[in-house]
Design a protein around this nucleic acid. Structure first.
Lengths: 174, 174
DNA sequence: CTAATGCCGACCAATGAGGTCGGAGACCTG
DNA sequence: CAGGTCTCCGACCTCATTGGTCGGCATTAG
């Protein structure tokens, strides 16, 4: 289907919400859930994983909640999707180093041609920091702000960005 | 999960195979299936849809098979995914004009911020023609191969070699 | 005619996504 | 100090979508 999963959606939503409305206060999961009308329990699970990643600081008890623990420019939607959805490679066997779990590595003719497509998509996702995902009423035509990526216009499919800069910033909390 | 479905994979594989090895001969489904070690029946189903899209010409009977009916630069992986996978919008309610079928339109906060991410991904996919998906033996660092597309017979200076100059001029195949 | 191919529909199975439940620790109140 | 309540936490469950299969029919070359 080629789409972000609900979990990724919620994670992105929550992170951007924290980046915007959670300046220096703890935000409860339920607040976010009600704000976006999404199931609170599922969001809770997502929040846990984000906290485990070191991106959120959690504090239990009443008046507890979550706080953004990192800069909103230091993590990208690629990071989030990868963390929440568990590996966002197009074909699963893409991330393993030598095909350790995929013994079809030799026969896997798919790896080559489709890996190229994968890299393009990953590239885009790795270049959108969560800061760029702000709540916006206007759905389209907001191109002006967030041109951090280099996608050309609609009819000239030239060189999307030759470098394929795989910037896996796998490091965690700064 | 953010990945192409198997069907899309197979479609892309088959199309690129036809673009490369099917110059002016009919290629049987089984040939492609065996080449890539994928289930023939499923590939057959995919091929039928591609044919119905007008991208493949089919001929039944012995010595029958498929032929690429369009230029390999005229369809993109976005087109293919959209056709085979059936609508590749992140959230389904994205394409409807005013949320006619999705009555959550008001609450749908996903539409705004996440639609932006969607558009970026779509953009990338819409800018990769199937010509760019060639079979490559070397998994990484095969950038140099990609350029082999339009290399003019003038002995190009060595400066041309690397990177990014993926030009899609080229008109149409008769 | 026969065989090989595409064509079409229905059918089955399993993976994984989406959603839910009961617990453990920490703040607040009396 | 003790109980209650609110929060996070982790395991569990269900079910829809996807991947895959099967059988039968139409068509055409030899």
């Amino acid at each position: 289907m080629l789409g972000l999963s609900k979990k990724s959606d919620y994670a992105l939503l929550a992170l951007s919400y924290l980046a915007t409305n959670g300046e220096s206060r703890t935000v409860r999961t339920r607040e976010i859930a009600e704000r976006f009308a999404i199931p609170a329990e599922l969001l809770a699970k997502v929040m846990q994983r984000l906290a485990k990643m070191g991106w959120l600081a959690s504090s239990p008890g009443p008046s507890g909640g979550y706080t953004l623990a990192v800069s909103d420019t230091s993590i990208t939607v690629g990071d989030v999707v990868r963390a929440v959805d568990g590996g966002s490679a197009l074909t699963q066997c893409m991330h393993s180093p030598e095909g350790s779990d995929c013994e079809q590595w030799a026969n896997c003719t798919i790896r080559g041609p489709l890996g190229f497509v994968n890299e393009r998509v990953q590239d885009v996702l790795n270049h959108i920091p969560i800061r760029d995902i702000r709540e916006r009423a206007t759905p389209a035509s907001a191109e002006s702000e967030l041109v951090s990526i280099v996608v050309p216009d609609h009819s000239a499919p030239a060189a999307v960005r030759a470098g394929a800069s795989r910037s896996h910033n796998e490091g965690d909390t700064p």
